[in-house]
Design a protein around this nucleic acid. Sequence first.
DNA 1: CAAAAACATTGACCTATGTCAAGAAATCAA
DNA 2: TTGATTTCTTGACATAGGTCAATGTTTTTG
Lengths: 195, 195
Amino acid sequence: MTKELFNKHITKFINISSEECENITSFFTLKKFAKKTILLHAGEVCRFEAFVIKGCLKTYFIDKNGFEVILTFATENWWVSDIASFQQEKPSQMWIETIEDCELLMINQADKERLLTTYPVLEKMFRLLVQRHLVTYQERLFGNIALTAKERYEVFLHKYPALPQRIPQHLIASYLGVSPEFLSRLRNKKKKPLE
Amino acid sequence: MTKELFNKHITKFINISSEECENITSFFTLKKFAKKTILLHAGEVCRFEAFVIKGCLKTYFIDKNGFEVILTFATENWWVSDIASFQQEKPSQMWIETIEDCELLMINQADKERLLTTYPVLEKMFRLLVQRHLVTYQERLFGNIALTAKERYEVFLHKYPALPQRIPQHLIASYLGVSPEFLSRLRNKKKKPLE
DNA sequence: CAAAAACATTGACCTATGTCAAGAAATCAA
DNA sequence: TTGATTTCTTGACATAGGTCAATGTTTTTG
């Protein structure tokens, strides 16, 4: 069954029986979304935390010229939400949108509270997830200051080896903080030595 | 007494009596450090979380050419630590160093656990602190991609109006991700219109 | 399946920011 | 107080990466 991915994910963080796992899953709702569906508009309060069963999403800000700046990609086994907006119920600055058709396990604020009351042991998992997230941003900030575009692209390929085959290249450019043209040139320069 | 800052800080996050507050404070140790003391070396496990009573610190990575890239400044009323290293007891990639003489309220892992067992209500405060931290990184990443150096400097001045008078300018340059020379030029261009 | 839309590539040129070097100013430490 | 450091400024020059425009390619959609 499709939710097994989720059980496996949970047991990576905490020790728990498979019945309990099933029960935890029942706090979530499985939802499907078509490609290019916007799940969160900047200005809205984020009402979900979602675990990606299938598909790929992006979270992004919009800059002063109306261009997307991609903060994160979320694929299978990742979580996606604007955590600060979700937990403090304040308007988000962020957009969340599917890049492919997606299946998500979603939970809202009230159910998450019930879940944590029922399984306090999950506090730890959510805490670790936030921390992991924080570390990711630290590393990206560092990379954006200390590395060249080429180096950042290599780090990206290493971290998300499957993504370039799944999503348009200009989204990767946005994530790396370079123009689509420049990323194209980088890739083509890289290939040359093979000829 | 100097720890009042801390009590005030805590009560901003949670509702708690002043005796309880005193007691919470007793889990921490007040320590003083001279300027330019390294409190955490990359490669070590971070053994503290510290609340800044007085002074200023920086957290930074070292790039491949041996240059600092400053991730955060911490001044009065801020916390400083490598949270991921502290909580998972794994080696840090980060350096933490005082920029001025400092007074810090520090706590180690064991005492933090005891503290949270005694005052579970503090979980919320620490959760909010991590989230706030996360949002800060999100915004900086966005800024570093979407804004010019000049704009980032203006954001910085707005966020830390008192810092330029306290710390050397090249540290600000490192935080902004520009060379010290370029920041100097930015500042001097800005002044011109006044003549 | 054809037309439209989205995406990628390439060239020409531009600009924000970096690097190096030298000197001036400020701060520190004995 | 006076060297010694550390920090800041300025000039000359270099470069990573951006912008715009044209064209080709792929994907989507009616």
